[in-house]
């Protein structure tokens, strides 16, 4: 039973980390998807953009003084196109934003929430047993076995005069183990990031001025 719990937890942690590492790609994929789903607006935007470029080129090629009427007509069209383009741009951006929001909600419902519920549900399940009951002091062993609540309940029981019974074999519960695992993973991530992806900084040269 503990094996299946550990395997499921490792799988969920791996998927979460994969999604975190590929966050930049998601943004690009979602933008491309939003352009495809909103193809009518995208086509209209591209055609208007092309027309805008043509008008700008035409205006640059003619003289404002000699062809005043045409120049001002082009300018009026350019002003109109600018407004239309900004409207289409905001529409496309809104669509992309909605898609991002849907993706985040999906991630919350399919990954974050189930993982959270799984941790709460299987939190007390023992993942492995310690070599001996006295490997850690009583209070710390109690936390590993019963969770963080043991830190609060032990002094409370002592004040109320209740006896707290420890199980015959002390182990590490799933909740504590997953906390320790995520802590170690984040430390390893920072370590790898520093060792492999951080440039070495040399000491700045101090020029003494007399």
């Amino acid at each position: 039973m503990a094996n299946s719990v550990v395997i499921i937890a490792l799988f969920l942690v791996a998927v979460t980390k994969f999604i975190d590492y590929t966050a930049k790609y998601h943004s690009n994929w979602l933008m491309a998807l939003s352009l495809k789903t909103n193809s009518k607006d995208t086509r209209e935007y591209n055609s208007k953009l092309r027309k805008q470029r043509q008008l700008i080129e035409e205006n640059h090629s003619i003289s404002a003084q000699d062809n005043y009427a045409k120049w001002t007509k082009n300018n009026r069209q350019l002003d109109k196109l600018k407004i239309e383009l900004s409207e289409l741009d905001s529409k496309i951006k809104l669509n992309s934003k909605n898609l991002h929001a849907i993706f985040h909600k999906l991630k919350l419902i399919t990954l974050t929430l189930p993982f959270f519920v799984f941790k709460i549900w299987k939190g007390k399940e023992i993942v492995y047993y310690l070599p001996t009951n006295d490997t850690f002091p009583y209070l710390i062993s109690g936390v590993w076995n019963n969770g963080w609540l043991h830190l609060v309940l032990t002094p409370l029981n002592y004040i109320l005069g209740r006896q707290t019974s420890m199980s015959t074999k002390v182990g590490v519960s799933f909740g504590i183990w997953i906390w320790a695992l995520t802590n170690v993973i984040s430390n390893i991530e920072s370590l790898i990031k520093f060792l492999l992806f951080t440039e070495k900084i040399e000491a700045p040269k101090v020029t003494s001025q007399k």
Binding site: P131, W144, V172, A180, N187
Partner: peptide, 17 residues
């Protein structure tokens, strides 16, 4: 201290298996 204890917990689990 907590970071090192977490490492010990993970390694203990691995070695006990």
């Amino acid at each position: 201290f907590v970071a090192d204890i977490c490492f010990v917990l993970v390694v203990l689990g691995l070695l006990m298996y």
